[in-house]
Amino acid sequence: MTDLRVESLSKRFGGLRVFQDISFDLPAGGLLGVIGPNGAGKTTLINVISGRQPATAGRVILDGRDITNQPAYAVSRLGLARSFQQTNTFKSVSVGENIARAIRFGSRGAPPGLASMLTDFGLMSRQNEIADKLPYGLQKILGLVMSFATSPRILLLDEPAAGLERNERQIVDSFVQRVRQAGASVLIVEHDMDLIRRLCPRILVLDAGALLADGPPAEVLARPDVIAAYLGEEAA
């Protein structure tokens, strides 16, 4: 059974092609990494799949149901949640209120394992603190936990480790494992190659809006065209 299937998805802004003809499957319980140089269209891919921006062509299918261009709230209510690259919380209210809103707006009740996640990530003891006053890393982790608090079946993570300290990145590993233990599949867009190698059995490589490679990291990252795409970025 396939949970999420993306078929020939394309996105343009006016004359600017962001990505074209992207296809992949994310099976139930699966874990998929998406890498690519800056400007490869990774964040826009998440935006289009999650209904934040309309697709130009192609389809997004969730459990056999076409959800292309459904509004973001509808996609979320069907069980496909996403996190944001920048810290994204309700900044003026407490940690507890942030989590309460995520649970309430998600309308499927709190997922199993949420309480232990909050305790272990150090959020439970700070539940009365205002989100904006937390250290940056913890704000970012709060944003991740909020996306999980909606009880998704599929979670799209947009650079979860960006801006985190080295020791905080362990929390992202732990977060992804716990989300999968709760039965959800995960797609991670990430620049931290170590993290991708540690976590993902399979990765997609996006370059200049096209799907360059799809396979296990050891195999894919050894391919000359993939190396060239990354070297190109470093040279620029």
Binding site: Y73, S76, F84, N88, F90, R101, S107
Partner: peptide
Amino acid sequence: AAIEENEILAESLG
């Protein structure tokens, strides 16, 4: 309050 502060986040949470 959620709409006032961060409409995009609120919508993506459902």
